[in-house]
Structures are given as C-alpha cells and as structure tokens.
Design a protein around this nucleic acid. Structure first.
Lengths: 232, 232
DNA sequence: ACAAAAGTGTTCTGTCTACACCCATGC
DNA sequence: GCATGGGTGTAGACAGAACACTTTTGT
C-alpha cells in the first residue's frame, strides 16, 4: 500500500476496469464495436473492449490503451459515460467499471482482434447480440451520452467522412435519436445553420442533377450554432 | 483477494472514493455544501463531503452514507457527475473518485458536521473558498451536470419549496445558468408550460396585489414539457 | 421620497412543422 | 415500369426576444 509523507491509508479496494463503447457510421447505420471474449468469465460472449486500470494511467488513458490492444483502434474523441458499481456485476468479485464512449470515422474502422479479444466486429446498434456483464446497461447509457454529445459538440462530424451528403447525415441522426426527421426540414435546418459548406462541384463526383450534394463541416459556423442551443 | 467459482484475479487496485456536491437554494442564491476537513491531507481546508467506498455498497450508496455521516443530510435525488482519476490528485497515493451531485429542499438544509468533518456549511456558488484536492474541478463539472439535469428532469422543483414564487424560481435559474432571464418571458414560458399550478389565494399568505403569486409543481404537465425539449 | 421588487401585454422575428411533386437510378 | 432515393418551397403555428409602466414595501 502506498505511503506518502506521513499519511497512510489502508482501506478495502475494489478492482477497477474501463469499458469502451466505440461508435462508427457506415453511411447507413450507426454501429458499435464489440469483441468476443477470449477468457472467462463470459468466454466467447460479446462485450465491449476494456480491461483493468493500471497504476500509471488515468481512466481515459486506460480506456485508450485497452482499446488499442484489443482492437487496434485509436479514436481521438472520448467521453466518459458513467461508472458502474453494482455489487454482483462481475462474477470474479467486486469490480467497478468506468465506461467511455468514443467515435471513429468511416475510414478508420478497420479492426483486428488482439490481446484478450478472440474477435472484434461492428454491430448495428439496432441488432446487438446478447452482451456480457452489465454491458447492455452500459450501452444504453453510452447512447444517451452520444445524444448529449451531439448537442454540445460537433460530434456528428467526427462520425462522418470529411465530405458527406445530407441524406447520410440524416441517417446518422435517425439512428442516434431513434426517430425520423422530415427530410426538407432537416436540410433547411443544417443548411441555414452555418455548420456546412458545400463542396465545389468538381471536387465532388456527383453523378447527376438528382444525386446528393456533398458538404464539409465548417468549424467556423459552430460557435454560433452552439450559442443558439443554450437558450433556457 | 476474492475468488469466485474458478477464476481469480490479482491486479493492482486504486483506492476509490466518492464525493458529494450537494446543492440547495435559499430563495436568493444557489448554494453548495462544503465540509472543513478534520484530517490530513488538506486538514482544515474546505472540501466536498465524501470518503472511501466500502465493500458492500455501490458508489451511490457510498455517497449517501458518507454524506449522512459527515453532514446528516439525506437528499433523495442523486446524479453521477464523473470519475476523477488524475495520477496526483490525492497526496496519499493513487485514488480515483466518483463525484455525485444531489439536491435538497430549503426546508432540509440543516447540517451538523460529524465524522471526518470539523464543520459543514453552505456557500453560495459564486463565493466558494479554495477547495481541497481537485474539488474545484469537480464543482465545475457538477454544476454542468445540474444544468443537464434541469433539462432532463424536474430537478428545479427539488430545489424549491413545495410552494414557491416565480421570481424565486427565476433567481434559481439565474444562478444555475449563470445568466439573466427576461422576467416577463420567463413567466410566460413557465406559466404556459403546464408545469405550474397556481396556489389558491387563501392557502398562500400573499401580502398585497403586487406581492408575488405562489405556485406548485404540477407533475402532470411534465411529460409534455419534456417532449418539447427533445426536438432535434 | 426613494429604491427595489413584482405584476402585467404586445409586437416582431425566427424557427419548427406539415406537406407534394419531379427527376434519376437500379432492379 | 416500378420502387427507391433525393432535390426543392410554401404557409401556418408556435416560441423567443425586446421592451415600459404601475403598485407596493421597506429604508
């Protein structure tokens, strides 16, 4: 047990783990990354990538490390979801877990299972298999945090390619919020928001007059957009 | 170390604590509860009430227990704020803390310092003293969560008396959001929201035609109010 | 008497909602 | 040729912002 200066403590300690709920968007559906566990407990079951906190790292650093080890992914943006501490959540003994949500772009979704993961795959959020531990619960809270994240930061654009179409973006919102948006109103809202700049015709390989138009996220328009959200 | 069935683990473990950011409202200002620490480290400094997680309790249960022990308070509504895990946040050694925010009504703000607390007092959120550990950081995040809470649940009414006036409620919002609201627009918004029901004249001890009117929270009007908030 | 607090309505503007048709592509 | 997907505009309802005067109480 550590000792620093002249205080010491000697208390019971739980094991502490981190779990990663990684989201991606393939142009059609919102997906989440699961690994198949190589070891007991829940061997061969699907779960979020994660593992034990080490002595020399923060929780977020642990989440990044474990994710890299088990799937090769290194998302830029992490959000803390919540801590989970039900007494019986881990059959190995008392364990609390802190879950993180993160997002990767479509171009960076290649995964290779490693370490404790026998397999790693993307699943549409509407078609998740049975999950190990209380990961079902973690997932619901992570999706909730993703919604909050969409409101408070331009997270959506971290899930889209650099260049994207409005119908793509709308499908993303549909999956994230679990409801439909009127197409014309959705377009009007974002086109008038200053968040998007249209990509020049020759840069985009648009096929015809009725093929979707391409847009890019406009960092500059974001400050104003955010201000509008925080009316009462 | 625990053993269950036939798996065992043997990993390094951090100490785990909980911290309580308790909010109250005295009719004029939003306040937060601090204790003066009886022990090292940060002896005699102001800090949030908290302590070590025990083996037989969840994090929220630990937060409730510690708060009760140190201040006598037992708020009904708790929200998890975040986990804090910077390597050097506790001079005693590696400790991660999970912070909770909670709210008490004006009638239930009587505190009596106990256990590890030499003193316990309410401070206006705009006049906090220097805080121990990284509690300044915890406070900022807790206030942020309170704002989110105001949006997602009728938390505001858990900070007000059963019967309250609109100017009181507006002062609460002013402190929580750190900005002013137009008085007439504020009233219009909430009066038309269905969230409030006016208290009968004879129940309220209204002093004159220009004394404030009294209202009560109307649980029934809440579902609709919430629906409106979740348009895109 | 003066300052501080609270009741009260209207106008303007912007945003949200609902809704239908045409064109192009792929099957 | 049929279903799918995507571009495009308008009218009505609602919500937010700005804004001034009067009454009462306490100092």
């Amino acid at each position: 047990m550590e000792e620093t200066g002249n205080y010491t403590y000697q208390y019971w300690r739980p094991a502490v783990t981190v779990d990663n709920v990684v989201f991606s968007f393939d142009g059609t559906h919102l997906n989440v990354l699961l690994i198949r566990r190589k070891n007991e407990p829940f061997k061969d079951k699907w779960a979020f990538a994660g593992g034990f906190l080490d002595e020399n790292e923060t929780l977020e650093e642990a989440a990044r490390r474990e994710l890299k080890e088990e799937t090769g992914l290194a998302p830029k943006h992490f959000m803390e979801v919540s801590a989970f501490s039900e007494l019986d959540r881990d059959p190995r003994g008392r364990t609390i877990s802190v879950a993180f949500a993160s997002v990767v772009r479509p171009t960076q979704t290649a995964v290779k299972a490693g370490d404790d993961a026998a397999d790693a795959r993307w699943f549409p959020v509407t078609e998740l298999p049975m999950l190990a531990f209380d990961h079902e619960h973690i997932f619901r809270k992570a999706l909730w945090m993703l919604r909050i994240g969409f409101l408070n930061a331009p997270i959506a654009f971290l899930l889209l390619d650099d260049i994207f179409t409005l119908p793509e973006m709308q499908r993303l919102y549909t999956d994230v919020y679990g409801r439909n948006f009127d197409r014309r109103n959705f377009q009007k809202k974002f086109l008038s928001s200053g968040l998007l700049t249209q990509v020049a015709q020759d840069e985009a390989d648009r096929k015809s007059a009725h093929a979707p138009l391409f847009y890019r996220f406009n960092e500059g328009g974001y400050a104003e957009f955010r201000k509008k959200l925080w009316k009462l």
